[in-house]
């Protein structure tokens, strides 16, 4: 049997790029497909520092970190398909790829699934009240603001206090927005201690602990949220025009789901990066992805 390529890499975030490079170095022919204009995945939305200490020995922004990897890719034999999405992966080891002007089926020996993660949506939180505009996930806002130069509202409440939320809250505060509160259901904020000092405390963002948002208000646009203090059940209204949720990432294995047999994936399909499990540190993720990609079948 002859394959079009040795390896198809689905997704060109940190995980996909690291895996593709490792495989190309080992002599495999590799095609890497990613929907973005240029590879990078969520790194392209990260304008803050804190990337690359381990791998490059430097404190880089996410965008810079992605640029380093892109340079390595250009020097490698990896074929990058930008603006290309893998529509399906079939049991006969072919995949359907769609990009501008080009729809193709590619057969491969192995497939690295590096499709990343998606965020838990505010819609799935089953909040009471109306369904106004002005409610976003943190990743969506990062994309809007940092990648596409779009604006959001002025008076912002965050739900969830993990790293993603803290970093974005501090960035929005620095850009002149009012971050009114960060609501967290636990009794202390989440995220790395480093981030808490550098972002949350430095930007003076009020924390509302042991609490959650239970209701949205406003007809067409958000005008406020109801916040419930969990131990007492006491509810209060907070006026705002934007709610940003940062309530967790979910590995995106949807392309793999139809291939599952008895709870197992075929051995030629290897999930890496956030699509395997959610990583906090990109260097760890990149190193794991390399390793997983190189494990012989």
């Amino acid at each position: 049997m002859s394959w079009d390529v040795n390896v198809l890499v689905v997704g060109g975030g940190a995980a996909g790029m690291a895996a593709a490079l490792a495989l190309a170095e080992a002599g495999a022919s590799v095609v890497m497909a990613d929907p973005g204009e240029k590879p990078g995945g969520i790194l392209n939305r990260c304008v803050h520092r804190g990337f690359g200490q381990g791998l490059f020995g430097e404190d880089l922004t996410g965008q810079e970190y992605a640029a380093r990897f892109r340079r390595l890719l250009r020097e490698s034999s990896v074929t990058v398909r930008p603006r290309t999405t893998v529509l399906s992966i079939l049991p006969d080891r072919t995949a359907v790829l769609s990009g501008p002007g080009r729809l193709e089926k590619i057969s491969f020996e192995r497939c690295i699934l590096a499709a990343g993660s998606y965020e838990r949506t505010p819609q799935s939180l089953l909040l009471g009240g109306t369904r106004p505009a002005g409610v976003y996930t943190a990743g969506c806002v990062q994309g809007l603001v940092h990648e596409y130069g779009q604006d959001i509202g002025q008076r912002i409440v965050f739900l969830g206090s993990g790293d993603v939320g803290q970093i974005l809250a501090a960035q929005l505060a620095a850009a002149g927005k009012q971050v009114l509160a960060m609501v967290e259901q636990k009794d202390r904020p989440g995220g790395l201690p480093r981030n808490r000092r550098e972002y949350l405390e430095a930007a003076n963002i009020p924390l509302i602990l042991q609490s959650t948002v239970t209701r949205l208000h406003g007809d067409r646009h958000l005008t406020g949220v109801t916040i419930c203090h969990l131990p007492t059940g006491k509810e209060s209204f907070l006026s705002c025009d934007t709610l940003i949720t940062a309530t967790g990432l979910i590995p995106d294995r949807r392309l793999a789901d139809p291939l599952m047999k008895d709870g197992k994936l075929p051995e030629w399909l290897i999930p890496v990066g956030n699509c395997r499990r959610i990583y906090d540190i990109v260097d760890v993720l990149a190193a794991d992805s390399r390793k997983l990609a190189l494990i012989p079948q």
């Binding site: 998606y118 949506t121 976003y136 994309g143 779009q150």
Partner: peptide
């Protein structure tokens, strides 16, 4: 993803 990834 309810537009979380693609809205922008």
């Amino acid at each position: 993803c309810q537009g979380g990834r693609c809205l922008a």
